[in-house]
């Protein structure tokens, strides 16, 4: 009950925010945060709950983005249909990668996704007729709901907020569903899970497919917001790593973790980039890398769980003191 009140309160607060904040740069940071929080939520489903690390989530993100961009620019298809096509392709592809890997133990899924993302990047560079190669696709600016393009940042803000809220709600729901418990059981001990009658390969595959669908939706949002897409921007390994990084920092396998991670890292990254400037190219990614190592070594459960434990011990201490 309390959790609901808090969530609605924060949601209402965020909804009211554009009425007060008018600086475009701040709105931009909020929109990016919503986008990456949704993307991290998608990663969390397979990487957090199911414990199958994907290092190629950029591929699904990029497939969604490219399907939508190619559809609207080359074939004049509505972005809504482009979205559907992107999601379908991403889901099919993730099933095709997941199927051979989830039957096996060991880090095969991680290796496959990392290799797959690289292959998609190279194919996008290769099929120039369709994708414009390294030049990228520029989407003509024609505002309108039918084109899913808006002239201000505020509509994007609300769509992004809705996307984040929905995907977070989905994760929250999964965490408390039978499906979610199956995934966690498989992550913790595959043999035990199998012994209980859970078809581990099948549920991992489901998780991967749902995750890919959300990632593709995020990709569509990205391209409709940026109105530009190129292989380096969406298929870069760094994109995949950021999704994983935010989830880990916030807390993998918790519904709040990815949102907390994105809310911390995106503003920090943007300010660092602005502050360091072009002279320090690469330095802010290096910072991310160091943060990743430190988090894994010091607070592997992520911020959410760590803070919860701290609060719990405090509360427990209080109770214990009162008892005395």
């Amino acid at each position: 009950m309390k959790r609901w009140v808090w969530s609605l309160f924060i949601l209402a607060l965020l909804s009211a925010l554009p009425l007060v904040v008018e600086t475009q740069f701040y709105l931009h940071i909020f929109i990016l945060t919503f986008l990456y929080a949704s993307f991290a939520n998608s990663w969390n489903l397979i990487g957090g709950y199911a414990g199958q690390l994907s290092l190629g989530h950029a591929a699904f993100f990029g497939i969604g983005a490219y399907a939508c961009a190619i559809g609207s620019v080359k074939f004049g298809i509505s972005p809504f249909i482009g979205l559907a096509i992107g999601v379908i392709i991403a889901v099919l592809v993730s099933a095709a990668i997941g199927y051979p890997c989830f039957r096996l133990r060991g880090p095969f899924y991680t290796l496959s996704t990392i290799a797959f993302a690289e292959v998609v990047r190279l194919l996008t560079l290769y099929w120039r007729d369709l994708t414009e190669g390294a030049v990228g696709i520029l989407i003509p600016f024609k505002p309108g709901v039918a084109n899913l393009i808006f002239s201000g940042k505020v509509p994007y803000y609300y769509i992004g907020l809705a996307m984040m809220a929905l995907s977070t709600f989905l994760c929250y729901h999964v965490e408390r569903s039978r499906f979610g418990y199956y995934l966690v059981a498989v992550r913790e001990d595959e043999d035990a899970a199998e012994a209980c009658g859970i078809r581990s390969a099948r549920y991992k595959l489901y998780a991967a497919m749902i995750s890919a669908a959300i990632a593709a939706v995020c990709g569509v949002f990205y391209v409709q917001y940026m109105l530009f897409i190129d292989p380096e921007g969406v298929f870069n390994l760094n994109v995949s790593i950021q999704a994983a990084l935010m989830t880990i920092i916030g807390g993998a396998g918790t519904w709040l973790g990815p949102v907390v991670g994105a809310a911390l890292l995106i503003p920090l990254g943007e300010f660092l980039r602005g502050w360091l400037g072009g002279a320090a190219r690469g330095l802010h990614m290096a910072f991310y890398g160091i943060v990743l190592i430190v988090v894994v070594m010091v607070i592997p459960q992520g911020i959410v769980v760590t803070v919860k434990n701290l609060l719990k011990t405090k509360a427990t201490r209080k109770v214990e003191e009162e008892r005395r």
Binding site: N238, Y288, V291
Partner: peptide
């Protein structure tokens, strides 16, 4: 992975 990102950048 963190080490890889750090070294690369």
């Amino acid at each position: 992975v963190g080490l890889s990102v750090t070294l690369q950048n």
